[in-house]
Amino acid sequence: MSSTMPSHRDHVINEINELLFKHGFETSNIYDRSCFDLVARRELLLLLMKVLINVDGFSAAHAQEIKRVARTFLASPLLVGIKSKNEVLEEDVVYERHGIPVIAPTTLRNIVVEEIYPEIFADRGGYYVEIDGQIVKDVRESQDLSLKDLADLAHVSRETIYKYETGRVRAQPETAFLLESILNMRITLSVDLFQVPQQKNMDKKDEGEPRELVDLGFGVINTNRTPFDALAKAETQNVDVNKKTEPLITDLEKNRNQKVLKRMATNLKDLSDVIGTDAVFILEKKKKLDSIDGVPVVHSWEIGEMKDPAEFLKMLAERRECN
């Protein structure tokens, strides 16, 4: 099994990439050994996607990293998988691993092609749905049904109906679908797959590298499982270089040779195009170099002579325009 699984996974990734591209998404290259395999954008929706055969192989460390990147770019992390343990993931059901939503490839296809969003999510103890309690109450009252009347029809307790209406409990799918049949109204809510992870205190933006950017007034987050080295964003509110203060994706020199830097430049350009942000190399070499294969270069000694992030962003814009 171990000899066939990588090619199987590659096949799934390529199918997903083609699916997204055919339906209006701009997609990145595929990145192995990263917390995400590809980035996809359609209008305001930006996805960071990881594809696995067995979703139990998705580690907490990878989840933490993809969340940090997603928060920075207001993106939605999404894990697509085939199975968990020995069970195949079911169609139109949302699972979860380390706070990241998990779906099967067929579920993704239904969303992208048919705009059919899943309503059922898996949790400890089974499958559940969220009920729009206000709709249940409004329709029940419009049909002159008491809490007990509806409870008797749905074979649940009066207290359960009350909890549904007040949003205190989730329902099992069978009960929810029976209520929909009784009320002749959709009462279930689609699962919100495309959320941006909430900010956490673990994102320590003042401890990153390079220190020159931190000292200049940038928040910097270093990454270990991405095709780049760090994320940087101006912390001050008075930065105004064509109103462009989006986060930057950054690669550092780290004693890398020119061949490696050129390969990294390809990744930076690809990701910056899809994400819609700037990329930059921060180099320590004294030799003046304005760009590597179209990606602007700013030297550490140049940053040391700057007063604020605005100067850095201005230099970055000038070198970008020269390419």
Rank of each mutant, 00 (worst) to 15 (best):
T4L: 13
T4V: 13
V12I: 11
N14M: 01
I16V: 08
L20A: 00
L20S: 10
K22E: 14
K22Q: 14
T27D: 14
C35R: 12
F36D: 01
L38Q: 02
A40Y: 08
R41Q: 05
R42I: 13
R42Y: 13
L45I: 10
L45E: 10
L46R: 02
L47V: 05
L48P: 12
K50A: 05
V55E: 09
G57Y: 08
S59Y: 05
A60Y: 13
A63K: 03
L74A: 09
S84P: 09
S84E: 13
K85Y: 09
E87L: 07
V88M: 11
E96T: 11
R97K: 11
H98T: 14
V112L: 06
Y117H: 11
E119V: 10
R124I: 15
G125E: 07
G126V: 11
Y127D: 02
G133R: 00
L145W: 04
L147A: 02
K148A: 04
A151C: 09
A154C: 11
E159K: 04
I161M: 01
E165C: 00
E165R: 00
L178F: 09
L183V: 05
L183T: 09
M185E: 15
T188P: 11
S190V: 15
L193Q: 02
V196W: 12
Q199P: 03
Q199M: 03
Q199C: 02
M202E: 15
K204N: 14
K205T: 11
D206T: 03
E207S: 08
E212G: 03
L213T: 02
L213M: 12
N224H: 10
P227L: 02
D229Q: 05
A234I: 03
Q237M: 15
Q237L: 10
V239L: 04
V241A: 02
N242L: 08
N242P: 08
K244L: 12
L252Y: 06
E253G: 13
K254F: 15
Q258C: 05
V260D: 06
M264F: 12
D270R: 00
D270N: 02
S272M: 02
S272T: 06
G276E: 05
V280H: 05
F281M: 07
K285I: 14
K286H: 09
D293L: 07
D293Y: 03
G294Q: 09
V297T: 01
V298R: 01
E302I: 12
M306I: 11
K314L: 11
M315W: 14
L316G: 04
N323V: 14
